[in-house]
């Protein structure tokens, strides 16, 4: 209990401190006094902080949900082909010139990831074996990547450049108008998942066990997968395909909080994810995916090694 409270307090302080640092630092020097009047603050720095916070929270919660539902520590929006689905739809709109009208990139990403989720769900209803599902998800991912590479060969240099830079991920692409749409999409995903805590806590032991606890498994499984896909889609649309956070952060949360209760793990993962995303966002001049992996992998390996030495794993 004390560990949990301490963890929440320390991580919240990290999030606040890193947000502050991101807001006051940047290539252009803005004096502290004039900060709030400066357009740089409202149009560049605030959206950047919002993007990092929302993406960190969304990817971690999405990854945790997928891992729990599929009872597999490797599950995540990337492994299940859901991020690929989003990428494919975005590639269609950027490379093949298929407009998605006023829905734009977000709409495309949402449609793509939901289609991939529907496919994954369909497969999971047919095969109750979760390993089959992961293999199927990987295969779907490869198939979609192949389709994207075809689109790449057929596209002109300019749209290709746009797509490739989108593919590296960035917190700098969010505009101040986009913040609200991103925040709403993330809130919707979080509500769907938050309403299913009782299911998530039983789900780690299998569908039959959860049903024995009086949980309507098929309903809540759909709610959680829908929520987790919306989260992954929103991040893909606004920040590009951001790898790594979804799969790694839940493990960091298990180790820090030493709990399997989603009442602790969901907020815990969200805070860990926001912290790591803000840390990676401190270096905006480098590709986000590269920085995330360069910053994140050592942190998580260090935690893993430390806890193994203590016999924690």
């Amino acid at each position: 209990m004390r560990r949990t409270v301490l963890g929440f307090v320390v991580l919240s302080l990290c999030v606040v401190a890193l947000s502050f640092i991101t807001l006051v630092s940047g290539p252009v020097d803005v004096s502290m006094g004039g900060l709030l009047e400066s357009p740089i603050f409202w149009d560049l720095r605030l959206p950047r902080v919002a993007a990092a916070l929302l993406a960190g929270v969304a990817l971690s919660v999405s990854g945790l949900s997928f891992q729990t539902v599929f009872q597999n520590p490797l599950a995540g929006p990337f492994v299940l082909g859901i991020s690929s689905g989003a990428s494919f739809a975005v590639a269609l709109s950027m490379l093949a010139g298929l407009g998605f009208g006023r829905f734009g990139t977000l709409g495309a990403a949402a449609v793509g990831s939901l289609a991939a989720t529907a496919l994954v769900l369909g497969i999971s209803a047919r095969f109750r074996n979760n390993t089959v599902l992961l293999v199927a998800g990987l295969l779907i991912g490869y198939f979609i990547d192949a389709c994207i590479s075809l689109l790449i060969t057929w596209s002109d240099a300019e749209s290709l450049r746009v797509y490739v830079s989108w593919g590296m991920g960035s917190f700098g692409r969010l505009t101040s108008d986009g913040i609200w749409i991103f925040a709403l999409a993330v809130a919707a995903g979080l509500v769907l998942i938050g309403a299913s805590v009782r299911y998530l806590n039983g789900a780690r032991l299998g569908d039959d066990f959860a049903r024995g606890l009086g949980i309507r498994v098929s309903l809540y499984k759909k709610l959680v997968l829908l929520g987790a896909s919306v989260l992954a889609a929103a991040v893909t649309a606004f920040c590009g395909p951001v790898a790594f956070l979804g799969i790694a952060v839940p493990h960091l949360a298990y180790l820090l909080f030493r709990s399997s209760n989603h009442r602790v793990l969901l907020p815990g993962s969200a805070l860990c994810g926001a912290t790591l995303a803000l840390l990676a966002g401190l270096l905006p001049e480098y590709p986000l995916n590269a920085v995330l992996s360069l910053v994140g992998v050592p942190v998580i390996l260090w935690v893993l090694v430390r806890s193994t030495r203590r016999g924690g794993l």
Partner: peptide
């Protein structure tokens, strides 16, 4: 699951 403690497991019995 690997992280679940005895107390957390028994506590699942109160889920209904």
């Amino acid at each position: 699951p690997a992280e679940m403690t005895v107390r957390e497991f028994v506590s699942l019995g109160r889920s209904p």
